[in-house]
Amino acid sequence: MSSEKIVTLRVNGDEVKLIAPAHRTLLEALRHVGYVEVKCGCEKGDCGACAVLLDDMAVDSCLTLAWQAEGREVTTIKGIGTPADPDPLQEAFIETGGAQCGYCTPGMIIAARELLNENPNPTLDDIKKGLSGNLCRCTGYTRIFEAVSLAAQEMQKVGETA
């Protein structure tokens, strides 16, 4: 049996301590302490449901070990925005109907967040490419792409008036 270790990290700004053996994925460790907004799909990097930001970089938490998050900052969908203070992406997903069952949505928004951070004015092809690591079994993707495009436009408007 492998030894356990206490891992200290920040999740959505809060300091969190996790007790985990070496083989515990960040996905399992986060869900275990209640961050169930991080979804478990394929557990092999194919679906993107488990995506979180690790120091502002989107990663699949099923391909990250809890030990590798030591001292780092994790952002889940709840750290991106809340019902009281939603992110433009979350508002746009509601607006366009980009979420149906919603299982893929946290990962979609995490990947879209990284895309918009790097490219505030993406083309449809940029959006498709940015979300190519995320699978959705409900929407057929069209409304998801519309949501990201709408969020980008909204953010540009805010940027112009600010």
Binding site: G45, M57, V59, A111, S132, G133
Partner: peptide, 9 residues
Amino acid sequence: FAGTMVRNA
């Protein structure tokens, strides 16, 4: 290469 998350890792 792959998608956003895999490219980052």
